[in-house]
Amino acid sequence: MTTARRPDPADVAQVLSRMRSLNAALPHRDGVAVFNRVYLSVTEEVRRRLAAREFADQDAAGELAVRFAGRYLAAIEDDIAGRRPPACWRPLLRLRGHRGIRPVQFALAGINAHIGHDLALAVVDTCRAGDLELRTLEGDFDRIGDVLTAIEERVREELMPGPDVLELADPLTHVVGAWSLERARDAAWAAARLLWALRETDDAYDECVTRLDAGVGLVGRFLLTPLGD
Protein backbone atom coordinates (compact mmCIF):
# COMPACT_ATOMS: atom_id res chain seq x y z
CA MET A 1 0.00 0.00 0.00
CA THR A 2 1.42 3.37 -1.03
CA THR A 3 1.28 6.41 1.22
CA ALA A 4 -0.30 9.71 0.22
CA ARG A 5 2.08 12.35 -1.07
CA ARG A 6 2.90 15.20 1.28
CA PRO A 7 1.66 18.69 0.34
CA ASP A 8 3.97 20.63 -1.94
CA PRO A 9 6.42 22.94 -0.17
CA ALA A 10 4.95 26.37 0.49
CA ASP A 11 8.13 28.42 0.26
CA VAL A 12 11.89 28.23 -0.29
CA ALA A 13 12.51 27.60 3.41
CA GLN A 14 10.42 24.42 3.24
CA VAL A 15 12.22 23.35 0.06
CA LEU A 16 15.58 23.72 1.81
CA SER A 17 14.34 21.81 4.85
CA ARG A 18 13.27 18.84 2.72
CA MET A 19 16.53 18.83 0.76
CA ARG A 20 18.55 18.88 3.98
CA SER A 21 16.48 15.97 5.29
CA LEU A 22 17.33 14.01 2.14
CA ASN A 23 21.01 14.83 2.61
CA ALA A 24 20.89 13.44 6.12
CA ALA A 25 19.02 10.28 5.10
CA LEU A 26 20.93 9.21 1.98
CA PRO A 27 24.36 7.58 1.72
CA HIS A 28 26.97 10.06 0.47
CA ARG A 29 27.72 8.09 -2.73
CA ASP A 30 24.05 7.54 -3.64
CA GLY A 31 23.30 9.10 -7.04
CA VAL A 32 20.28 11.04 -5.78
CA ALA A 33 22.37 12.33 -2.86
CA VAL A 34 25.00 13.62 -5.31
CA PHE A 35 22.38 15.60 -7.23
CA ASN A 36 20.60 16.71 -4.07
CA ARG A 37 23.78 18.35 -2.76
CA VAL A 38 24.12 20.24 -6.03
CA TYR A 39 20.50 21.35 -6.00
CA LEU A 40 20.73 22.40 -2.36
CA SER A 41 23.51 24.81 -3.37
CA VAL A 42 21.34 26.17 -6.18
CA THR A 43 18.39 26.73 -3.87
CA GLU A 44 20.51 28.43 -1.22
CA GLU A 45 21.81 30.83 -3.86
CA VAL A 46 18.29 31.50 -5.16
CA ARG A 47 17.18 32.27 -1.59
CA ARG A 48 20.10 34.69 -1.22
CA ARG A 49 19.14 36.47 -4.43
CA LEU A 50 15.49 36.64 -3.40
CA ALA A 51 16.53 38.21 -0.09
CA ALA A 52 18.67 40.72 -2.02
CA ARG A 53 15.67 41.49 -4.27
CA GLU A 54 17.60 40.71 -7.43
CA PHE A 55 14.55 39.51 -9.39
CA ALA A 56 12.21 41.69 -11.42
CA ASP A 57 9.12 40.08 -9.92
CA GLN A 58 10.01 38.77 -6.47
CA ASP A 59 6.74 36.93 -5.92
CA ALA A 60 6.78 35.20 -9.31
CA ALA A 61 10.46 34.26 -9.00
CA GLY A 62 9.88 32.78 -5.57
CA GLU A 63 6.84 30.90 -6.82
CA LEU A 64 8.82 29.54 -9.76
CA ALA A 65 11.66 28.38 -7.49
CA VAL A 66 9.23 26.55 -5.20
CA ARG A 67 7.20 24.93 -7.97
CA PHE A 68 10.40 23.95 -9.77
CA ALA A 69 11.87 22.28 -6.69
CA GLY A 70 8.52 20.74 -5.81
CA ARG A 71 8.57 18.63 -8.95
CA TYR A 72 11.94 17.12 -8.02
CA LEU A 73 10.86 16.46 -4.44
CA ALA A 74 7.61 14.87 -5.64
CA ALA A 75 9.53 12.52 -7.96
CA ILE A 76 11.76 11.37 -5.09
CA GLU A 77 8.79 10.94 -2.77
CA ASP A 78 6.88 8.96 -5.41
CA ASP A 79 9.83 6.61 -5.82
CA ILE A 80 10.14 6.08 -2.06
CA ALA A 81 6.39 5.43 -1.75
CA GLY A 82 6.27 2.94 -4.62
CA ARG A 83 4.53 5.26 -7.07
CA ARG A 84 5.83 5.65 -10.62
CA PRO A 85 7.96 8.80 -11.00
CA PRO A 86 8.23 10.71 -14.29
CA ALA A 87 10.30 9.03 -17.00
CA CYS A 88 12.91 11.78 -16.87
CA TRP A 89 13.83 10.81 -13.28
CA ARG A 90 13.78 7.02 -13.69
CA PRO A 91 17.34 6.58 -15.00
CA LEU A 92 18.81 8.34 -11.96
CA LEU A 93 16.47 6.59 -9.53
CA ARG A 94 17.17 3.14 -11.00
CA LEU A 95 20.93 3.53 -11.38
CA ARG A 96 21.66 5.59 -8.28
CA GLY A 97 23.71 2.81 -6.67
CA HIS A 98 25.66 1.66 -9.74
CA ARG A 99 29.35 1.57 -8.88
CA GLY A 100 30.46 2.09 -12.47
CA ILE A 101 28.79 5.52 -12.74
CA ARG A 102 30.80 8.55 -11.62
CA PRO A 103 29.45 11.29 -9.32
CA VAL A 104 29.58 13.92 -12.08
CA GLN A 105 27.32 11.71 -14.19
CA PHE A 106 24.75 11.47 -11.38
CA ALA A 107 24.84 15.23 -10.92
CA LEU A 108 24.37 16.00 -14.61
CA ALA A 109 21.65 13.37 -15.02
CA GLY A 110 19.68 15.05 -12.23
CA ILE A 111 20.25 18.50 -13.72
CA ASN A 112 19.13 17.17 -17.12
CA ALA A 113 15.89 15.74 -15.70
CA HIS A 114 15.12 18.85 -13.72
CA ILE A 115 15.94 21.42 -16.41
CA GLY A 116 14.76 19.41 -19.39
CA HIS A 117 11.36 18.45 -18.01
CA ASP A 118 10.49 20.07 -14.68
CA LEU A 119 11.50 23.63 -15.50
CA ALA A 120 9.16 24.08 -18.45
CA LEU A 121 6.22 22.73 -16.47
CA ALA A 122 7.08 24.88 -13.46
CA VAL A 123 7.12 27.98 -15.66
CA VAL A 124 3.67 27.20 -17.04
CA ASP A 125 2.30 26.36 -13.57
CA THR A 126 3.69 29.62 -12.15
CA CYS A 127 2.11 31.71 -14.90
CA ARG A 128 -1.23 29.96 -14.49
CA ALA A 129 -1.21 30.36 -10.70
CA GLY A 130 -0.32 34.07 -10.86
CA ASP A 131 -2.42 34.86 -13.94
CA LEU A 132 0.76 36.02 -15.70
CA GLU A 133 1.72 36.12 -19.34
CA LEU A 134 4.66 33.87 -20.13
CA ARG A 135 6.84 36.71 -21.43
CA THR A 136 6.69 38.50 -18.06
CA LEU A 137 8.63 35.63 -16.49
CA GLU A 138 11.38 35.42 -19.11
CA GLY A 139 13.84 37.77 -17.38
CA ASP A 140 13.60 35.98 -14.03
CA PHE A 141 13.76 32.62 -15.82
CA ASP A 142 17.13 33.76 -17.19
CA ARG A 143 18.29 34.95 -13.76
CA ILE A 144 17.51 31.57 -12.18
CA GLY A 145 19.20 29.95 -15.18
CA ASP A 146 22.34 31.97 -14.46
CA VAL A 147 22.47 30.44 -10.98
CA LEU A 148 22.13 26.97 -12.45
CA THR A 149 24.90 27.63 -14.97
CA ALA A 150 27.29 28.82 -12.27
CA ILE A 151 26.58 25.73 -10.16
CA GLU A 152 27.00 23.42 -13.17
CA GLU A 153 30.44 24.90 -13.84
CA ARG A 154 31.39 24.25 -10.23
CA VAL A 155 30.08 20.67 -10.47
CA ARG A 156 32.28 19.96 -13.46
CA GLU A 157 35.30 21.45 -11.70
CA GLU A 158 34.75 19.61 -8.43
CA LEU A 159 33.53 16.22 -9.61
CA MET A 160 35.53 15.63 -12.77
CA PRO A 161 38.78 13.67 -12.32
CA GLY A 162 42.11 15.48 -12.76
CA PRO A 163 43.80 15.75 -16.19
CA ASP A 164 46.03 12.74 -15.60
CA VAL A 165 43.00 10.57 -14.90
CA LEU A 166 41.07 11.94 -17.86
CA GLU A 167 43.74 10.67 -20.20
CA LEU A 168 42.65 7.20 -19.11
CA ALA A 169 38.94 8.05 -19.02
CA ASP A 170 38.14 9.48 -22.43
CA PRO A 171 34.61 7.96 -22.37
CA LEU A 172 33.77 10.10 -19.32
CA THR A 173 35.00 13.22 -21.12
CA HIS A 174 32.84 12.27 -24.12
CA VAL A 175 29.70 11.57 -22.10
CA VAL A 176 29.93 14.67 -19.91
CA GLY A 177 31.04 16.94 -22.75
CA ALA A 178 28.08 15.93 -24.93
CA TRP A 179 25.55 17.65 -22.64
CA SER A 180 25.16 21.41 -22.27
CA LEU A 181 23.13 23.22 -19.63
CA GLU A 182 22.89 26.29 -21.84
CA ARG A 183 21.24 24.26 -24.59
CA ALA A 184 19.01 22.57 -22.03
CA ARG A 185 17.90 25.98 -20.72
CA ASP A 186 17.07 27.16 -24.24
CA ALA A 187 15.12 23.97 -24.88
CA ALA A 188 13.24 24.38 -21.59
CA TRP A 189 12.10 27.88 -22.53
CA ALA A 190 11.06 26.67 -25.99
CA ALA A 191 9.12 23.83 -24.37
CA ALA A 192 7.46 26.27 -21.97
CA ARG A 193 6.38 28.45 -24.89
CA LEU A 194 4.91 25.44 -26.69
CA LEU A 195 3.10 24.19 -23.59
CA TRP A 196 1.77 27.68 -22.94
CA ALA A 197 0.37 27.83 -26.46
CA LEU A 198 -1.26 24.41 -25.93
CA ARG A 199 -2.59 25.07 -22.43
CA GLU A 200 -6.24 25.16 -23.53
CA THR A 201 -5.99 21.93 -25.56
CA ASP A 202 -5.82 19.13 -23.01
CA ASP A 203 -5.01 16.24 -25.34
CA ALA A 204 -2.24 18.05 -27.21
CA TYR A 205 -0.83 19.48 -23.98
CA ASP A 206 -0.72 16.07 -22.29
CA GLU A 207 0.88 14.44 -25.32
CA CYS A 208 3.56 17.13 -25.48
CA VAL A 209 4.34 16.66 -21.76
CA THR A 210 4.55 12.88 -22.18
CA ARG A 211 6.91 13.11 -25.13
CA LEU A 212 9.05 15.75 -23.42
CA ASP A 213 9.32 13.50 -20.37
CA ALA A 214 10.34 10.48 -22.45
CA GLY A 215 12.91 12.40 -24.48
CA VAL A 216 14.58 13.87 -21.41
CA GLY A 217 14.64 10.42 -19.83
CA LEU A 218 16.45 9.05 -22.85
CA VAL A 219 19.16 11.71 -22.52
CA GLY A 220 19.46 10.88 -18.83
CA ARG A 221 20.03 7.22 -19.61
CA PHE A 222 22.87 8.19 -21.96
CA LEU A 223 24.46 10.41 -19.30
CA LEU A 224 24.42 7.46 -16.90
CA THR A 225 26.33 5.08 -19.17
CA PRO A 226 28.46 2.97 -16.76
CA LEU A 227 32.15 3.61 -17.32
CA GLY A 228 33.72 1.23 -14.82
CA ASP A 229 35.08 1.69 -11.29
Rank of each mutant, 00 (worst) to 15 (best):
Y72N: 08
V34S: 08
L16P: 03
E157Y: 12
M19P: 00
A56W: 11
V165Y: 15
L218V: 11
A187H: 03
A109P: 12
C208K: 04
E153A: 10
P85T: 13
L194D: 05
A184T: 07
S17N: 10
G220D: 08
A4H: 09
E158S: 08
P27M: 02
T3M: 13
D79E: 11
V34I: 10
A33C: 11
L132D: 15
D203Q: 04
G110N: 13
F106I: 15
A113D: 05
H28F: 00
E45Q: 11
V34G: 02
V104H: 04
G220M: 04
A192K: 11
D206A: 10
G116T: 00
P171E: 04
R99D: 14
T126P: 02
W89G: 13
A61I: 01
V15H: 08
P27L: 05
D170G: 01
A69L: 07
L95D: 12
P171H: 03
T149D: 13
L134A: 05
R84K: 13
R135K: 15
S17P: 05
G31Q: 02
V147W: 04
A81L: 04
Y205S: 03
S180H: 04
L194K: 09
E77Q: 06
R211I: 13
R128N: 02
L212T: 00
F55G: 08
L212D: 05
A197Q: 05
R37K: 04
A150L: 14
D229I: 11
V15W: 08
R128C: 12
D8N: 02
R84C: 07
A87D: 12
G31N: 00
V34L: 07
T149R: 13
E207P: 02
A197T: 15
A56C: 11
A75I: 07
L108T: 14
L227N: 00
R5A: 13
G228Q: 00
T149A: 15
V38F: 09
V15Q: 03
D142C: 05
D186C: 15
P171D: 04
R96E: 02
R199Y: 03
H28Q: 02
Q14G: 01
D11R: 01
T126F: 10
